[in-house]
């Protein structure tokens, strides 16, 4: 994923994402790639999707070392079950499904031990943020922490939908299939998720 920056009007830097297609054309593997020496075909899959899987795991779990373990485990599961992947789904969607199941299991066991309060979704229905207002960030280095804080304050479903829709290769239909609901339901919930995220993000400034 590449996100070149370009200076917008009034010296405000606007970051505009560009579309890429790693699934169709994975970047060339370096000869030093340890995975390519063991399994070149699987190394190409890893190369094309590892950033997306790692980022999803990182923001769902909120912990760097847990995300590292999860990414390793997700790709190992994918390797073991590669012959079961029938190609009727996009490989990114398949990897995301493994990631969601894995992270969900981890979070459930962690929450069972550590969390006793339930978040009230009705609070987020009436969030005062507006979807249209732009987000202004002074320090990019603080962005990760602020995003994590904001995502953590959202209901799990909103968090997941925002993370999935941020992947430009994922269509609403694919997100709907992954989250087991209709594409219309995804659109409706995303609207509320954006609003709730906007309100939460402003609080982290």
């Amino acid at each position: 994923m590449t996100f070149p920056s370009c200076a917008g009007p009034n010296n405000v830097q606007t970051l505009e994402p560009t579309v890429e297609s790693p699934a169709e054309s994975p970047p060339p593997l370096s000869s030093a790639s340890p995975l390519a020496e063991v399994h070149p075909e699987f190394a190409a899959i890893y190369e094309a999707h590892n950033r997306h899987v790692f980022y999803l795991a990182l923001r769902l779990l909120g912990d760097q070392s847990q995300a590292e373990d999860a990414t390793h485990d997700v790709f190992l599961k994918a390797y073991r079950n590669l012959n079961r992947f029938r190609g009727d789904a996009d490989i990114r969607t398949w990897l995301y499904r493994i990631t969601l199941n894995h992270c969900s299991n981890l979070r459930q066991s962690w929450h069972a031990r550590n969390v006793h309060a339930q978040s009230d979704e009705s609070v987020f229905e009436n969030a005062s943020g507006t979807v249209d207002s732009p987000f202004r960030v002074l320090e990019i280095s603080e962005l990760g922490g602020r995003i994590q804080k904001s995502l953590d304050s959202l209901p799990a479903e909103y968090r997941l939908l925002l993370l999935l829709v941020a992947d430009e290769e994922m269509s609403y239909d694919q997100i709907a299939e992954l989250t087991q609901q209709t594409a219309d339901a995804v659109r409706g919930k995303l609207h509320r998720a954006r609003k709730a995220f906007g309100a939460a993000f402003k609080k982290t400034a």
């Binding site: 994923m1 920056s5 606007t14 987000f135 960030v137 002074l138 990019i140 995003i147 941020a166």
Partner: peptide
């Protein structure tokens, strides 16, 4: 100042 038009842009 970096400006992002949406939550998705920010996450990206």
């Amino acid at each position: 100042v970096h400006e992002f038009q949406s939550a998705e842009d920010l996450v990206r």
